[in-house]
């Protein structure tokens, strides 16, 4: 058994506890499991509220023995002076020996009115892997905590006002937001123009173009009398929109006088109005709905050409 007395490896106080440990465990058992144990503690004076104190335990175990990490201390409040901020074990295997570096960080969260002596209680770990668990004891450690003010000054102390929050520069973000808003507005305006305003303007400016689009949609292999009736309505609506008032068979002549560019198809329009009158008011049916619809499309197409021409 290596009863190792470690040299001073740091500026902090280094204590060797091995003998003490062995005193607390059956010597034969401990000799078979523990290769080495060293405990490194810092200075034991000069602490105030908020300071952290780190204890490091270097434990070497013969395999298959190993540290039961569930026996490490839990983080959280320890007593009225201290809390355990961190407790962990770092493992390394080398030549059938397991090296453990156990780190326990304590933090002082209380300030005494005058210099006080505080003790970190004894810790106990267990090893596993042997016939029985072997306890490893870390003895208590005492240190002193100093107040942060003099007893007289405590009477006149008052809380300082809260520190003002640090201003984050947001100008660049505002500019980015503004640019994004402008881009989004522009996009929405374009979409409204493209899909809402433009079709309406075209419908008003070019009623026959709009009517032709509807007629082409009505042209299907199964087009029946109903399609032809819808087509006639669309065509009449285009003529009415062009005239600015309702055009009937009776005032078609006036329409052609006022819109002379449509005069070349006067006969076709007159025949169409007569047929429409028969269908809508005499309840006649188109004999060949598909052919009639095609004829209507042809007339509408010619009207579209006229409407885009200069009168």
């Amino acid at each position: 058994m290596n009863k190792n007395v470690s040299p001073r490896s740091r500026g902090d106080t280094l204590c060797v506890w091995t003998a003490l440990v062995l005193c607390l465990t059956p010597a034969a058992i401990a000799a078979q499991s523990i290769s080495d144990i060293r405990i490194v503690t810092p200075r034991d004076f000069g602490y105030t509220i908020g300071d952290k104190i780190r204890h490091e335990m270097h434990l070497s175990l013969y395999e298959p023995h190993q540290l039961d990490t569930t026996t490490l201390p839990k983080t959280g409040r320890l007593n009225r002076w201290l809390e355990i901020a961190q407790a962990e074990a770092i493992v390394e295997h080398r030549d059938a020996i397991v090296f453990y570096r156990i780190i326990v960080d304590y933090q002082i969260f209380n300030a005494p009115p005058q210099l006080a002596s505080v003790t970190i209680p004894q810790l106990e770990f267990l090893t596993t892997g042997g016939a029985n668990p072997i306890p490893v004891f870390i003895p208590a450690w005492t240190f002193s905590i100093a107040p942060i003010t003099s007893p007289h000054a405590r009477q006149s102390l008052s809380l300082r006002p809260d520190r003002q929050p640090h201003a984050i520069p947001v100008i660049s973000r505002s500019i980015r937001l503004l640019i994004s808003a402008l881009l989004l507005t522009g996009l929405l305006m374009y979409l409204a123009y493209r899909h809402w305003l433009l079709p309406r303007l075209n419908r008003e400016r070019y009623p026959f173009s709009s009517a032709l689009a509807k007629l082409l949609k009505l042209q299907r292999p199964d087009s029946g009398p109903q399609n032809y009736r819808f087509g006639l309505k669309a065509f009449h609506a285009a003529v009415n929109a062009t005239a600015g008032h309702v055009v009937f068979a009776g005032n078609l002549h006036d329409f052609l006088l006022a819109n002379s560019k449509y005069a070349p198809i006067r006969a076709e329009l007159a025949a169409l109005y007569a047929r429409s009158q028969d269908i809508f008011f005499n309840d006649a049916e188109a004999a060949e709905p598909r052919a009639s619809l095609q004829e209507l499309v042809d007339i509408c197409r010619r009207c579209r050409t006229f409407e885009r021409s200069v009168a």
Partner: peptide
């Protein structure tokens, strides 16, 4: 009214 209401 007659100029505004379409038929059909």
């Amino acid at each position: 009214i007659m100029q505004s209401i379409a038929t059909p």
